[in-house]
Amino acid sequence: MKITVNGKSRELAAGTTVQALLATLQMDADRVAAEHNGSIVPKNRFADTILAEGDSLELVQFVGGG
């Protein structure tokens, strides 16, 4: 299936969760803010949020400093 991640089209296996995608992208879930089809996904829902064909995902992995 195809979904859009940070504006770019990406091919994923059906049933991929946000958490699985973060692992594939080698992103640290604790430092990530995720928006799924325009809604924020709480960290405790990363594991059970299943992505579907045509979904749009915005992922921001923060680095320290402020």
């Binding site: 604790d30 430092r31 709480p42 960290k43 992995q61 680095v63 400093g65 402020g66």
Partner: peptide
């Protein structure tokens, strides 16, 4: 960085409709 992600999640997941301006990568 985990606190930045926490705030984004807490505020953008709240009832507020206000935008949030965050920062990452300035060292």
């Amino acid at each position: 960085p985990d606190q930045k992600a926490m705030l984004v999640e807490a505020f953008l997941g709240s009832a507020s409709a206000a935008p949030l301006v965050a920062a990452s990568g300035l060292a």
